[in-house]
Simulated assay, not measured.
Amino acid sequence: MTLNSDFIKISFGDEMENSKDKEYNIGSYWKVFLLIFISWFVFMAVMFWSANDFEFDFPPSTPLSFLGLFGDSFNVLTSLFTGLAFAGVIISVELQRKELKSTRDELTGQKDALEKQKLEMEQQSFDNRFFQMLNRFNKIREKFVADEKIVPNGSSRKQNHILDFFNGFCTTVSGSQNIETVAAMFKDSLFLDDENEFKYYFINLYQILKFIDKFYNERIDEAKFHTNMIRAQLTSNESQLLFLHIFFLQEFGGKKYMELIKKYAMLEHLDYERLKNRCNDPVYKKLIDHILLEYEQEVFGKNKKILEHINVLKKL
């Protein structure tokens, strides 16, 4: 009730102020009329009193020419009303001009208010959909960690599918002869398996990044606010898997995905040393260094440790 009352006071208060301004303007114009009338009156008084032989009682024998001259003397009065009429037209035009300007200003204000309301509604719609997508993405992430898994020694632990993926991969590539073989194994594991449990994870991550990028367009700071929120949720294991996935995805048409990863520095928190030391196989380590050099440095954002390591590798 208070809010509505305040709104009414503000709205009608503005209208009252506008009305007062208009009354003030009209009053100032009446002053002009009054000044013109007083000037005319003074002029006529001086003219009449300065004529010593002026008489209002004309005898019957007064010539018509004299009467005509007397009547012509009142042309001043006609000129006065003509001038006043012309001034009235000018004032009317001026008032209409100001009224039209006021109307345009009001329409501009309404347009700005509607535009602001539209942007707020679009932002609200974006936020709702963004958090829906983020919630769905987190549910997919939860599947990577099962409740419990019985290990051979009889104990139990949380099952981490990404960790199991790396452990199994390291066992497979042990003793490989070249990085091409290891790279082919990575691609087979990440893309050629139709039942790959990571497929929907990366698809949803891409859709979220694309959605943010499309909505904010060139408003990069606002877009990064949301992408940083996603990046902060990624675990070390997820960042390492993303590092490998995006690199090999380029062979399957993942150029746009790579652009988004680069634009929002999604690998800034990558623990590169941990990734490199997951497998003791020297060929695996060589492949990881090779992939690192293929990436553009913007992907790693402000990760000084990785940027320094890249500079060292380039000198070798």
Rank of each mutant, 00 (worst) to 15 (best):
I150V: 12
L267H: 05
F66R: 06
L95A: 09
E99F: 13
T172C: 02
F74M: 00
A51S: 10
L287E: 05
L69H: 09
K314L: 01
K118V: 12
E197P: 04
T235S: 13
G253C: 02
K111C: 07
K139L: 15
F247I: 00
N138Q: 04
L316K: 10
F7P: 00
E142V: 01
L275D: 11
N311I: 14
S155L: 01
N303C: 01
T108G: 04
F7W: 06
Q250G: 04
F300P: 01
G154P: 13
L275M: 13
K214M: 14
D271I: 01
Q132L: 03
K149S: 15
I306Q: 00
F243R: 04
S5M: 14
D105Q: 13
D271E: 09
I246S: 04
I220R: 06
T227W: 00
G154D: 13
K101I: 13
N228M: 07
K31F: 11
S156H: 05
E251N: 05
F54L: 15
G83E: 07
S19H: 15
F12C: 03
K262N: 01
N128W: 11
I150M: 06
G175E: 06
K305G: 09
F58E: 13
L244G: 03
K304I: 10
S5K: 11
N52V: 12
K139A: 12
I90W: 14
F48S: 14
L67R: 06
W30K: 10
Q96A: 14
Q96D: 12
S176H: 08
I38K: 06
F131Q: 12
A85L: 04
L307R: 06
P282D: 00
S65Q: 09
P59G: 02
M266D: 01
G83F: 11
N4Q: 11
L209V: 00
P63A: 02
T62D: 03
W40C: 03
L307A: 02
L249Q: 08
K199N: 00
L190Q: 02
S174E: 10
G301P: 00
S189D: 07
N178C: 15
T172I: 08
F211Q: 05
V93A: 13
F41T: 05
T62I: 08
L241E: 10
S176M: 02
L293K: 05
E296Q: 04
L313H: 11
F74H: 07
I310Q: 00
K158H: 12
K149F: 09
D188W: 10
E148D: 11
E115W: 01
R129M: 15
S102P: 03
N303R: 03
E142Q: 03
L100F: 10
G71H: 04
L234D: 00
S50N: 09
N277H: 04
F225N: 03
E222T: 10
G88T: 06
Y24T: 15
N135W: 03
A85F: 02
M1A: 14
M16T: 10
K101P: 10
I150F: 01
D105I: 08
Q297Y: 03
R141E: 08
V76E: 14
S19E: 06
E251L: 13
F191K: 02
T172A: 05
T62A: 09
A223M: 06
A183F: 05
N204P: 04
L205M: 07
K224Y: 04
N18V: 14
M47K: 15
A232G: 10
F43K: 12
G71S: 13
I179Q: 09
F74P: 00
V46C: 05
Y201M: 07
Y264N: 00
D57I: 11
N167F: 07
E55G: 09
V283M: 08
F300Y: 05
